[in-house]
């Protein structure tokens, strides 16, 4: 049974379409990244999964439960790190977490033990008794993760877990997320628009745009989808002249040829590498390097949103 199964999810805010017929499946034990620009509908989708807002239409199951009908069953096993995270500023880190533990009906002794554990895990053990009001953004974010782990969830939803965090802190958080999957077998859904981060840790990702899931899969799968439309090659030769560029433009299927110093970039709708090699040799130059390009998520993503 998938951890999340959503079909035809829609959410309208009087006239504004936030989520528009979204289908989403998150499998057990994977890290799934929800990607999209601001206003794409990531947070709205997450709120629906938690029963914090009701969908206008569509079917949702989280761990087999309908979050609109049985929100408590979903919340008992799901941890949620909200996008704008807040704590009670005049309570200490420990007191804030203890409150969460009591809300989960974890008995006093067990609660104290777990709070100490999770604070150590996120590296806040030595500031545990300081008021949260004095914490930096990064510390609060880590405290948020501790808060999520307190109930030992099966499934964790993280809405922009690294936004506003410096690169070093972000790396720490990402490593922590990977460890949750590897060591505790948790399923993780995270939303972000920081592509290189998502690319690093996610098993699968979905690109969401104007409330629709426009593509979904592993990095390789997403790249292949893009490549089917257009490919790009880098050519390095001993000598570059207009004649060669003309010859390359003449190859069937080539859509663009650009020169960047001694590097020539060729875009084409099919794999034209043999033709490129022949054209270079025929122009009298030596072929030093010819490689097909692998896409980064950033390029894939931009490609989706450019058209």
């Amino acid at each position: 049974m998938p951890v999340v199964e959503a079909r035809g999810l829609k959410k309208y805010y009087d006239g504004v379409v936030a989520v528009d017929g979204l289908d989403l499946v998150v499998e057990e034990g994977e890290i799934y990244g929800l990607l999209g620009p601001n206003g794409a509908g990531k947070t709205t989708t997450i709120l629906i999964l938690l029963g914090l807002t009701e969908p206008t239409a569509g079917e949702v199951r989280v761990l087999g439960y309908d979050p609109a009908r049985e929100p408590l069953k979903v919340k008992r096993v799901t941890g949620y790190l909200p996008e704008n995270l807040g704590f009670y500023d005049d309570l200490s880190a420990r007191e804030n977490l203890l409150y969460t533990a009591y809300l989960n009906r974890i008995p006093e002794r067990e609660a104290r033990k777990r709070v100490t554990e999770v604070l150590e895990l996120v590296g806040l053990a030595d500031v545990a008794d300081r008021r949260v009001g004095t914490f930096s953004r990064g510390m609060k974010q880590r405290l948020g993760i501790a808060d999520v782990l307190l109930k030992d969830p099966k499934f964790v939803i993280l809405d922009e877990p690294t936004s506003g965090i410096d690169p070093e802190g972000a790396v720490q958080i990402l490593d922590m997320i990977v460890r949750l999957r590897d060591e505790r077998g948790m399923t993780i859904l995270l939303s972000s628009h920081l592509l290189h981060q998502v690319q690093r840790i996610c098993d699968r990702m979905g690109i969401i745009h104007q409330g629709k899931l426009v593509a979904q899969g592993t990095l390789g799968e997403l790249g292949a989808v893009v490549e089917a439309g257009e490919m790009s090659f880098e050519v390095r030769t001993s000598r570059v002249d207009e004649g060669l560029l003309e010859a390359l433009r003449g190859i069937e299927g080539v859509t663009a040829v650009e020169r960047e110093g001694d590097l020539i970039r060729v875009r084409a709708s099919a794999d034209v590498r043999p033709h490129i090699a022949r054209a270079v040799i025929e122009s009298g130059a030596d072929l030093l390097e010819l490689k097909g390009h692998t896409y980064t998520l950033e390029e894939i993503y931009l490609r989706y949103f450019q058209g």
Binding site: L50, L52, L72, K73, K75, R76, T78, G79, Y80, P82, N84, L85, G86, F87, Y88, D89, T100, L103, N104, R105, G144, D147, K151
Partner: peptide, 14 residues
Amino acid sequence: NRGTVSRVLAQPIY
């Protein structure tokens, strides 16, 4: 306003 509502209501309470 403090942003605590999301955290509290993500816990299993009515």
